[in-house]
Structure formats: structure tokens, C-alpha cells
Simulated scan of single mutants.
Amino acid sequence: MEYNALIKPSESTKPTPSIIGTAISQAFLIERTDVELAQAGKVLAFDFDEHGQIIQIEADSAALAHLSHVKSAAAADSVS
């Protein structure tokens, strides 16, 4: 097989986004709608439980708000 075909598969051999989304959903035990949210977002924030399981995904403005809250809490912890 040609190198370029391995690096850049043709459209006919690429898995469809729905197959990829379903696989991600099943692998990480999250809802398909959360996968779609993550695929559409530019900035993502993930919350995990104590076992490392994803429990919440936020995208874009919600993610930015979440990230600034986490940074503020971390800064407060470093000062005290």
C-alpha cells in the first residue's frame, strides 16, 4: 500500500463520524450526545470521577467558565 494512502486514507475507507462517535461513546461509557458535543466544540473541559471515568463534558463558553473557575481555585490553593 502506498504511504500517502496510509497517512491520508480516501473518503471511501475512512470510518464515518457516527461510527467513530459510537465507538468513543462505548469505549468511555458516555452518552452519544456528549461525544457529539465534544466533536463540535473548540474548547473542552472534562470532569472525572475518582475512578477516572468521564462524568461530564462541557464545550466552548461553558468549558471556558469551568476552566477559569478551576484556575482560580488552584491559584487560591497555592496562596494559602
Rank of each mutant, 00 (worst) to 15 (best):
M1D: 13
Q39I: 11
Q53G: 03
I30A: 07
D49V: 01
A65S: 08
I20A: 13
A5K: 14
A23G: 12
L29F: 00
D49Y: 02
S78H: 10
I57T: 09
Q53T: 05
S78N: 09
N4M: 15
E50T: 11
A74I: 13
F28M: 01
M1T: 14
H51S: 11
K8I: 15
S61D: 15
E36L: 11
D47M: 07
A63M: 09
I55F: 09
A23D: 02
A38E: 04
A73I: 01
A5G: 09
D34I: 01
K8T: 14
A38P: 05
P9S: 02
Q26C: 00
E36P: 01
S61G: 01
L6Y: 12
K71C: 03
S72W: 00
A63H: 06
I20K: 14
S68E: 13
E58A: 13
V35L: 06
G41S: 15
K8F: 15
A63C: 08
D34E: 15
A65Y: 06
D47L: 07
T13V: 11
S12V: 10
P15C: 05
Y3H: 12
A73Q: 08
P15I: 07
L44A: 07
A5N: 10
V43M: 03
L37I: 06
P17N: 06
L64Q: 11
H69T: 08
F46N: 06
S80C: 05
T22L: 14
F48K: 08
P17E: 14
V35F: 00
P9F: 02
A74P: 00
A5Q: 09
A45V: 08
S72G: 04
A38N: 05
D34P: 01
H51W: 01
A40C: 05
Q56V: 08
A38W: 02
P9R: 04
D60T: 05
T33I: 02
V43K: 05
V70I: 12
F48Q: 07
G21W: 05
I20Y: 11
S68Q: 09
A62R: 00
A27V: 00
S61E: 15
A76L: 03
I30K: 00
I7Q: 10
A62Q: 12
E31K: 00
D47F: 06
F48C: 07
A59P: 02
V43G: 00
S25A: 15
R32Y: 13
S25M: 03
G41R: 08
A45Q: 11
I30N: 04
L6I: 13
L29K: 14
S12D: 13
E50R: 15
S78G: 01
D60P: 03
D34Q: 14
A63F: 07
V35H: 04
E50G: 03
L37Y: 04
H51C: 04
L44D: 03
A63W: 07
P17L: 13
S25H: 07
A76T: 09
K8S: 07
I54D: 05
L37W: 02
